[in-house]
Write a protein that binds this DNA or RNA. Sequence first.
DNA 1: GCCAACGTTGGC
DNA 2: GCCAACGTTGGC
Length: 264
Amino acid sequence: MPPKHWLMKAEPDSRIVKGKDVKFSVDDFQQVKTTAWEGVRNAEARNLMKEMKMGDKVLFYHSNCKNPGIAAVAEVTREAYPDYTAWDSSHPYYDEKTDKENPKWYMVDVTFQTRLPHFIPLSLLKRTAGSSTDAPEEELEYIGTQGVQAIKTMALVTRGRLSVQRVEEKTYDVLLEMGQRGGWDEIDTKKSKATKTSKKVQVKQAEETEGERDNEGGSTQKKQPKPARGKKRKAGEDRDSDAETSRPLRRSTRTSRPSHVEGG
DNA sequence: GCCAACGTTGGC
DNA sequence: GCCAACGTTGGC
């Protein structure tokens, strides 16, 4: 079966939970390469992780930050297994109601693949999804009406709080193309539109600066990995039993879920 | 199993 | 920092 597609959220900005920073930005991810997506404490998000298979594609999203959006592409490299952080009382995502004999929370390992040359801001997706027609804005002409329709169905815009979401293949393809081609002026996704210079110039400018701005999500630092809430994150220190994967501290839970909930 | 109170997510 | 949306808890 063909790979499925997903979107997973991490927090690129520092946030201390139980004394540990749960930050995990795209820079952190790129550095550690593979991370266990721990800390998801929402049943629906967990159930989705249990459906993930090796090789499935993952869009890495920056949440709870100044410029939320899609920053990179990753791949599932280990299928669901118990999230040990749930029973580690010192961990930010400890869940006293769980135990090893009967794991409640699961995680997958995800491996960084590539950054999107053009960070895709949530503001752009929302603006596109909010359009009353299916005609893309000029800068996004290349996605066509189908592209607009695909974006309109995204869980990211229809139900913001889910930290792990399924992404339709068509939507995934559209997002990858956007990440590849860009064409929008970042500035105008957040503020009013900048004067537009010829489109070519704009594109060019975007390309020139985008490298730096893409990180805006907040990842300016590059050292420790921590995930955002709800996302994943973790820190590699805690354990090395698994040695092959370094883990940042990821996850948080916010997006994922409160610490002990399960819903879903 | 309903639902009100409460807590969290996460954009702005 | 605010607060809307929405998920969870827990009484009944």
